[in-house]
Amino acid sequence: MTVKTIQAPLPGTFYRSASPGEPVFKSVGDAVAVGDTIGLIEVMKSFTSVIAEEAGTLVAFHVENEDAVMAGQPLCDIDA
Protein backbone atom coordinates (compact mmCIF):
# COMPACT_ATOMS: atom_id res chain seq x y z
CA MET A 1 0.00 0.00 0.00
CA THR A 2 1.38 3.36 -1.12
CA VAL A 3 -0.18 6.65 -0.34
CA LYS A 4 0.12 9.26 -3.08
CA THR A 5 -0.57 12.88 -2.34
CA ILE A 6 -2.24 15.03 -4.95
CA GLN A 7 -0.90 18.57 -4.87
CA ALA A 8 -2.47 21.80 -6.06
CA PRO A 9 -1.17 22.42 -9.61
CA LEU A 10 -1.59 26.17 -9.16
CA PRO A 11 -2.59 28.66 -6.47
CA GLY A 12 -6.21 29.64 -5.98
CA THR A 13 -9.44 28.53 -4.36
CA PHE A 14 -10.12 24.80 -4.05
CA TYR A 15 -13.62 23.47 -4.68
CA ARG A 16 -14.83 19.93 -4.08
CA SER A 17 -17.90 20.23 -6.33
CA ALA A 18 -18.68 21.74 -9.74
CA SER A 19 -20.89 24.43 -8.20
CA PRO A 20 -22.43 25.18 -4.83
CA GLY A 21 -25.17 22.71 -3.95
CA GLU A 22 -23.93 20.03 -6.33
CA PRO A 23 -22.54 16.74 -4.96
CA VAL A 24 -18.81 16.59 -4.28
CA PHE A 25 -16.60 15.01 -6.98
CA LYS A 26 -15.06 12.60 -4.45
CA SER A 27 -15.50 11.72 -0.79
CA VAL A 28 -13.14 9.93 1.57
CA GLY A 29 -13.41 6.19 0.87
CA ASP A 30 -14.34 6.65 -2.81
CA ALA A 31 -12.57 4.72 -5.54
CA VAL A 32 -10.53 6.97 -7.83
CA ALA A 33 -9.67 6.09 -11.44
CA VAL A 34 -6.97 7.70 -13.55
CA GLY A 35 -8.47 10.86 -15.08
CA ASP A 36 -11.13 11.32 -12.42
CA THR A 37 -11.78 14.88 -11.29
CA ILE A 38 -10.95 15.38 -7.61
CA GLY A 39 -11.79 19.06 -7.45
CA LEU A 40 -11.47 22.45 -9.12
CA ILE A 41 -9.08 25.30 -8.52
CA GLU A 42 -10.27 28.79 -9.32
CA VAL A 43 -7.65 31.30 -10.31
CA MET A 44 -8.94 34.78 -11.09
CA LYS A 45 -12.41 33.53 -12.08
CA SER A 46 -10.98 30.81 -14.33
CA PHE A 47 -11.37 27.16 -13.33
CA THR A 48 -8.87 24.31 -13.67
CA SER A 49 -9.72 20.68 -12.86
CA VAL A 50 -7.57 18.70 -10.46
CA ILE A 51 -7.24 15.29 -12.13
CA ALA A 52 -6.12 12.00 -10.57
CA GLU A 53 -3.04 10.58 -12.29
CA GLU A 54 -3.19 7.30 -10.39
CA ALA A 55 -5.98 4.96 -9.40
CA GLY A 56 -6.76 3.98 -5.82
CA THR A 57 -8.90 4.92 -2.86
CA LEU A 58 -9.24 8.43 -1.58
CA VAL A 59 -8.17 8.24 2.06
CA ALA A 60 -7.94 11.85 3.23
CA PHE A 61 -8.49 15.48 2.26
CA HIS A 62 -5.98 18.03 3.53
CA VAL A 63 -8.07 21.05 2.59
CA GLU A 64 -11.71 22.08 2.89
CA ASN A 65 -14.05 23.19 0.15
CA GLU A 66 -13.40 26.87 -0.76
CA ASP A 67 -10.05 26.92 1.02
CA ALA A 68 -7.27 29.10 -0.34
CA VAL A 69 -4.45 26.87 -1.59
CA MET A 70 -0.88 27.54 -2.70
CA ALA A 71 0.74 25.80 -5.69
CA GLY A 72 2.15 22.47 -4.49
CA GLN A 73 -0.01 22.35 -1.37
CA PRO A 74 -1.24 18.81 -0.55
CA LEU A 75 -4.94 18.48 -1.44
CA CYS A 76 -5.70 14.82 -0.74
CA ASP A 77 -4.18 11.36 -0.33
CA ILE A 78 -4.88 8.39 -2.55
CA ASP A 79 -4.04 4.86 -1.45
CA ALA A 80 -2.85 3.28 -4.67
Binding site: L10, P11, G12, T13, E42, V43, M44, K45, A68
Partner: peptide
Protein backbone atom coordinates in the same frame (compact mmCIF):
# COMPACT_ATOMS: atom_id res chain seq x y z
CA UNK B 1 3.69 48.43 -6.55
CA UNK B 2 7.11 46.77 -6.71
CA UNK B 3 7.13 43.68 -4.49
CA UNK B 4 3.34 43.26 -4.45
CA UNK B 5 2.15 39.65 -4.67
CA UNK B 6 -0.99 39.63 -6.83
CA UNK B 7 -3.30 37.09 -5.16
CA UNK B 8 -4.99 34.41 -7.28
CA UNK B 9 -8.42 34.76 -5.67
CA UNK B 10 -9.90 37.79 -7.40
CA UNK B 11 -10.33 39.51 -10.73
CA UNK B 12 -7.22 39.75 -12.90
Amino acid sequence: YPGYAVPPFYDS
